[in-house]
Design a protein around this nucleic acid. Structure first.
Lengths: 135, 135
DNA sequence: ACAAAGAATTAGAATTAGTCTAAATCTATA
DNA sequence: TATAGATTTAGACTAATTCTAATTCTTTGT
């Protein structure tokens, strides 16, 4: 009798996937897929663009990285996977993480208003970052 | 002496721009630029894709429509221009407006945490919409 | 250890959203 | 009515991402 195979998605952290993960973990900021590709090929020169995207999907589904999608260009990837909020600078586009527990507390109220079954809530602030305010 | 011309951006609601505006105002949902283009050319068969984009930029800058950018594909346009929040269905992608005044109240706290000078805050709920919950 | 099956990777083509460009058309006004 | 400025048009172009098909691992059974 054939052995039962439960998992649909494989769960191996291959060399390529690990390289991508390490790139994200090594950075304070929120790199794009392209930036990750550039950095990853320094360690693994043969890695391809498609593999970076495949790895990012894998890592996201495994909960190891967090994908941030604002409309402004490319998705960005975040090593911080706990619930948190984002601030985006209207001048320079800088993206900053912060956590506002009060925002998380609004999940019930948001579910009631929207009639959705809530999975998560996320607050986005738009404004001017400290650097651009100075300049 | 030449007449002084103050406005940098012109402010005429041309036939094309008005057609785009009417399409958005006529819809309950949040059409993409492509959907707007399809609908607008029923009234104005010669309108071009680029003009739809130009008109959307004009209408957005004039405050007549609201642009919603989630990473999931194309920008969507909303006739509702007052501050409001959004719920997105993780199953079918449906986008719904709602207003949670408590979210607006968090603008001060969010500014403090992020160190940004705040312009706006916006709460996004992700979950399952009523229709998908039934199915 | 070896072959077969399944998974992952690769390179490049394809797709999609959106912007840019240059020529043509409008429109207001002197 | 001529003209200058603004707008529209069609299509080329760009950037991000996904798809595809061939190739290269990895397992695992024998």
């Amino acid at each position: 009798m054939a052995q039962v195979k439960e998992n649909k998605t494989e769960d191996k952290l291959t060399r390529q996937r690990d390289a991508v993960l390490q790139v994200i973990r090594a950075r304070e900021d929120h790199p794009t897929a392209n930036e990750i590709f550039q950095a990853a090929r320094e360690h693994l020169p043969t890695i391809s663009y498609a593999t970076v995207y495949n790895s990012l999907r894998f890592l996201r589904e495994a909960g190891l990285v967090h994908e941030i999608k604002f409309g402004d260009g490319a998705s960005r990837y975040d090593r911080e996977t706990d619930r948190h909020d984002h601030a985006i600078c209207n001048e320079c586009g800088k993206l900053v993480d912060f956590d506002l527990p009060q925002a998380a507390d609004l999940i019930q109220a948001a579910a009631r208003k929207s009639k959705f079954q809530a999975a998560s809530v996320h607050l986005t602030l738009r404004g001017i970052c400290p650097d651009c305010r100075k300049a």
